[in-house]
């Protein structure tokens, strides 16, 4: 310290402003630049994607693989598949996530609760490529009989229209795998918010004679609604961008179809990039990057809305 601090010889020689130490200057600048660098990186991601997309947007669509009529024609089935599979995952995972979060925060014995929370977090630790292997090796064959049964008995319902896929590798299977993958993140956020319910509200409800479920419905769920919404949005963001599980489970086609159980399924943007990029050449590389830009914009919008909802309620500082 003595080396960096110039000592005034006497009291009257004190400078009007304290001398800025070199160490302080370097350190604060390093911190500032690192913070700024994050903004630069994010901007660079956007700029590079846009720059590399432009050739695809201006090129003749006849040069693209599969000869779509236009860029929009190429990207629309992929956008549809992305949104559809993510929506399926969300519909299946959200009620489960709320249930698990309630179980850990309000039903499980206190001593067990944390360990059970870790157990759910372990789901997040499994790499996506392993989920892909599992989806195709275990889940698809196991669930195929259910699909057959559904098509035979509920085929009149448009979503379950036949003919059934013989392998079980359908968009519903991909949706289930995605749902499992986004479960931990949604559970974690719901759990945090439920745990922050004011204890006085809960005790007041119980003191008035409410059963535990009535207490949850009156005190916990209304308080946690913003947390549930933002958790769902973050899970949706994950599901939109998830690549390998979908790429491995689906054998994709460029179609727009809501049918859940047929062997012809729309692909997703991310899966299409992963499958096509290694063999892509020329303007097709730009084409794939342009679809990546579309994905980037979609997830950016979803995540921004989610963060906006979370940040509006500052009480949820612990909620990721």
């Amino acid at each position: 310290m003595t080396a960096t601090t110039p000592r005034p010889a006497s009291a009257e020689a004190l400078p009007a402003k304290p001398a800025i130490r070199l160490g302080d200057l370097l350190f604060s600048r390093a911190a500032l630049w690192s913070g700024g660098l994050i903004l630069v990186i994010l901007a660079a991601v956007a700029i590079f994607l846009v720059a590399q997309s432009i050739p695809a947007l201006t090129a003749d669509p006849a040069d693209f693989v599969g000869q779509p009529a236009s860029f929009l024609d190429y990207v629309w089935p992929l956008v549809f598949g992305t949104l559809w599979s993510a929506a399926l995952a969300l519909v299946m995972a959200l009620p489960l996530a709320i249930g698990i979060a309630l179980f850990i925060s309000h039903y499980a014995p206190r001593k067990l609760a944390q360990a059970l929370g870790y157990l759910v977090d372990l789901l997040a630790a499994v790499p996506s490529v392993v989920y892909g292997l599992w989806g195709i090796g275990v889940l698809a064959p196991a669930i195929q009989p259910v699909y057959s049964w559904l098509v035979d008995n509920a085929g009149w319902f448009p979503l379950f229209a036949g003919p059934v896929s013989g392998t079980g590798r359908t968009i519903l299977t991909a949706g289930i795998v995605l749902g499992v993958m986004i479960l931990p993140v949604m559970t974690a956020i719901c759990r945090e918010v439920f745990l922050q319910t004011p204890v006085l509200h809960e005790e007041a409800a119980l003191a008035l004679g409410a059963t535990r479920w009535e207490m949850i419905r009156m005190a916990v769920l209304p308080f946690g609604r913003p947390g549930i919404i933002s958790g769902a949005m973050l899970g949706l963001g994950r599901a939109l961008g998830e690549t390998m599980a979908v790429a491995m489970v689906l054998s994709p086609q460029a179609i727009v179809s809501f049918a859940l159980l047929q062997s012809a399924n729309p692909s997703t943007i991310a899966a299409n990039i992963a499958l096509s990029f290694p063999e892509a050449y020329g303007v097709n590389v730009n084409l794939l990057i342009a679809t990546g830009l579309v994905l980037f914009l979609i997830t950016l919008a979803v995540n921004s809305i989610a963060r906006y909802v979370v940040n509006r309620r500052k009480d949820f500082s612990g909620a990721n």
């Binding site: 994050i38 991601v45 994607l49 991310a270 994905l295 997830t299 995540n303 940040n311």
Partner: peptide
């Protein structure tokens, strides 16, 4: 405030987009 917000947004970047960025770079 901007850094806090964009760090949050950055956690949501799809991994494949990060790969495309690195490729473009």
């Amino acid at each position: 405030r901007a850094i806090t917000f964009f760090v949050d947004v950055m956690t949501g970047i799809p991994s494949i987009v990060a790969g495309l960025f690195a490729y473009a770079l």
